[in-house]
Amino acid sequence: MPVELTREALIERFTGLIEEQKVGFTLTDPSAPLDLDSFTMMLILTAASEMSVDLDMEHLDFDDFYSLDVLVDKVLAEAKTAI
């Protein structure tokens, strides 16, 4: 199901994916460090792709996965560029 590209929708979508992968982890602060593994990072990139935001290696930096805030900012910025 397509997800609307708003900050809140992205946070909700990515939080769900991250919490599903990290056992016993609840994301309460979007600015907190995430410490994600590559499996979860790639899952998020695939989910972003389903929202028509395709990040390529020129635009992708693994520092963008530092926190949910940074990640969502990156996806929104990329979506804006694509439009």
Binding site: S38, M42, A47, E50, D54, L55, D56, M57, L60, F62
Partner: peptide, 30 residues
């Protein structure tokens, strides 16, 4: 991770046949 894994993953997930799969399969296969 930066020069082999990630670019290959990003290319694979968008390949025809993989792109149309549901999220979990698309991610899992790639």
């Amino acid at each position: 991770r930066d020069y082999v894994f990630s670019p290959l993953f990003l290319a694979l997930k968008n390949r025809r046949g993989v792109r149309s799969l549901p999220l979990a399969w698309r991610h899992g296969v790639s």
